[in-house]
């Protein structure tokens, strides 16, 4: 059965399966593998039609900078919602590595972070335990922002 996630501003079905950090076997279908698994099985994994990788909060996108072409999805795990490293990783993927695929937030992040995550270049959100339709409202917490970010490359001072 597909899961529901938020993607590109709407609630949608999702078939990606996130393998946990200890996984060594890779099942059929759309999988998002932990970094260690990617590192250990690069050659075979790179043959798959669909592939995602996930980074923990202490794993910088730097570590996959050379292999980004292999991934349809890069997921960033929030082990706790207060661990804000992922915000920087999202931005780095888009800005420094020019990654165009899906950047997905997974883990313990909360609805009230959606607006900021979106600004940092995330476009998919595997959000647990809340009403996803209602959560969509949080993307509209603010209608504009002072700083340049991924969603708005020009700071407000250039647009006033």
């Amino acid at each position: 059965m597909p899961n529901k996630i938020i993607k590109d501003g709407a609630v949608t079905d999702d078939n990606w399966q996130v393998l946990d950090a200890q996984a060594t076997e890779v099942p059929e279908g759309a999988v998002i593998v932990p970094l260690s698994l990617w590192n250990g099985q690069k050659d075979t994994l790179a043959q798959r039609g669909q592939l995602g990788v996930w980074l923990n909060s202490d794993e910088s996108p730097q570590l996959i900078a050379d292999s980004l072409d292999n991934f349809d999805v890069v997921a960033i795990n929030f082990p706790a919602f207060a661990d804000g490293r992922g915000f920087t990783y999202g931005r780095e993927l888009r800005q420094q590595h020019n990654y165009q695929g899906e950047v997905r937030a997974i883990g313990e992040f909360i609805r009230d972070q959606l607006y900021f995550l979106n600004r940092c270049g995330f476009n998919a959100f595997a959000l647990d335990g809340v009403d996803l339709d209602k959560a969509l409202d949080s993307f509209a917490d603010f209608s504009d922002a002072y700083q340049a970010a991924i969603d708005q490359p020009e700071p407000l001072f250039k647009r006033r």
């Binding site: 919602f81 920087t88 972070q113 900021f116 995550l117 002072y146």
Partner: peptide
């Protein structure tokens, strides 16, 4: 202005 609601630095 820059620091207000900075999306990247709200969970330092």
């Amino acid at each position: 202005e820059w620091s207000t609601f900075h999306p990247e630095f709200a969970f330092l």
